[in-house]
Design a protein around this nucleic acid. Structure first.
Lengths: 96, 96
DNA sequence: TGAACACATGAACAGATATTCATATGTTCA
DNA sequence: TGAACATATGAATATCTGTTCATGTGTTCA
């Protein structure tokens, strides 16, 4: 069914989600695409820090990028990203 | 809907899943509870390393522990754990 | 009670990683 | 073309974290 390799890939995937900056960036994109400076401002992060994290998210194919003039617009790469985060949020917000 | 705090908690949750040792331990428990030495042997990890990771998993309430004589049996704490991993595996094993 | 077994834990070390700072690249427009 | 803007990127640093090693705690049984 699932190979040992799958589990390593899975750990790598969760590692990407396991950083509050990246999760907050991804969550920002839930409502649609955004450019880098808007993400920076809305999250109170420097442009550089956001850009570094976006690169990681893009390399992992969790976000997609599109240029429009001077701006780069980022969006969620696919619906799985939303599903995984939603599933996690359900667990986290569960009443004990 | 979701607070800023939820996102930090979520990152913490994914951080736990974001390590191959822990994911492999959790996955081992998919078929039912196991004791520490069996987990160690099946994963080729030292007893100490497994024990350290189990402590983290227990603190995060992802596994439950039960003593039986000299042995400690660990099991998945709830079904969310399985769901979150399954969801991730779907993403990882998706054909491009 | 004491030896043998199962597991937990603290300290130390090595490797990984997120941010900052400085600067480079790419784009528009006058 | 050159200034202004948006974004990317490399290097350096500080912090975090997983494993190992040594040892402690808890349990059984003769």
């Amino acid at each position: 069914m699932y190979s040992e390799d799958n589990l390593y890939d899975l750990a790598e995937l969760f590692k990407i989600f396991g950083d509050s900056s990246r999760i907050r960036i991804l969550f920002s994109l839930f409502d649609g695409e955004m450019n880098v400076s808007d993400i920076s401002e809305s999250l109170g992060m420097t442009q550089s820090a956001v850009s570094h994290q976006l690169r990681i998210l893009k390399t992992s194919k969790l976000v997609a990028a599109r240029r429009e003039g001077k701006n780069m617009f980022y969006s969620l790469a696919d619906e799985h990203v939303r599903t995984i985060i939603d599933q996690g949020l359900e667990h986290v917000t569960e009443d004990d």
